[in-house]
Amino acid sequence: MSSVTSICNLALSNIGKKLISDINEQSTEAKTCKLHFDLARDTMLQGYEWEFAKSIVDLAEVANTRADRWERTYTRPTNCLKPIRIVPEVYVSDDIEVPYAATEGFIFCNQSPAKLEFIRRFEDPSRLPPLFQDALSWALAAKIAIPLTSDQSTRKDAYQIATSTLEAAKVADANENYSTWAENSALINARG
């Protein structure tokens, strides 16, 4: 089962450093991994619309602070790393987009009630797909290479491998989901 420590150990192994027993131990390796792990994970999650990290939630409406532009103001979920879209009240097709703005911890739009589809902070490493874990270990390796090795070449190599493993993870993730909503909707409309 994967854990933060096991992913950190992959990263440490990737750059030829000593493995750790626990992320909270007092070694330089553990402290460096702990410093960079959350940001490396969240950066990877925010940078792509990962199927495994998507979530939909009803937004909580608050006092409108932008009434000059938007009819409604909602609190942005605390675990929201990347808003994807406001889910339309009635599904017609994937092409229907509800305008919104996400800033200052709020989501602004003209729809009420509103549901937000977003990329969430995914804190349980045991549920991360294997290719994402591999890409994350290389991204973390690129971040910790200089503090732990002072070797630009090691960092450069880790960054290049991180880039290629990230692309492989994206391809695998994109192949995880296939939606026939649009096709079925077009067929139903053609019958009518």
Rank of each mutant, 00 (worst) to 15 (best):
D94L: 06
S93Q: 05
L166G: 09
A190C: 03
L81E: 10
N189W: 14
Q46I: 11
N110S: 12
T32P: 02
E97C: 08
T78L: 13
G192T: 15
R41I: 05
N110Y: 04
A158L: 03
K31E: 05
D134N: 15
T75I: 15
T180L: 14
D151K: 10
A53S: 11
V90N: 14
F108A: 06
L81N: 09
W138K: 05
Y48A: 09
A53T: 05
N9V: 06
Q46L: 14
T165A: 11
K31P: 00
H36Y: 10
F132M: 01
T75N: 13
G16A: 06
A145S: 07
V90W: 10
W50S: 03
S13L: 10
K115N: 07
Y91V: 05
A63V: 12
K170R: 15
Y178Q: 12
E61I: 11
T149W: 04
A169F: 01
D68Q: 13
R69I: 15
V57D: 06
A60P: 06
V171M: 06
A30Y: 00
L19S: 13
E167T: 05
L39R: 14
M1N: 14
A63G: 12
A60L: 14
L39P: 00
Q152K: 10
F37S: 04
I107D: 01
F118L: 07
E97M: 04
S21Q: 09
H36Q: 14
Q26P: 00
E89F: 13
V62I: 13
A190K: 15
S3Q: 07
P125F: 08
L10C: 08
Y159C: 00
T73G: 07
I56H: 00
Y91T: 05
L35E: 13
S6R: 04
I96A: 02
Q111K: 11
Y159N: 09
K31C: 02
F37D: 02
L19V: 03
R72G: 02
P83T: 09
C80Q: 08
S164I: 05
I119P: 00
D157F: 12
D58R: 11
H36F: 07
D151G: 03
S27K: 01
F132G: 02
K156Q: 11
A186K: 15
F37G: 04
R72H: 15
Y91N: 03
A102L: 03
I86C: 08
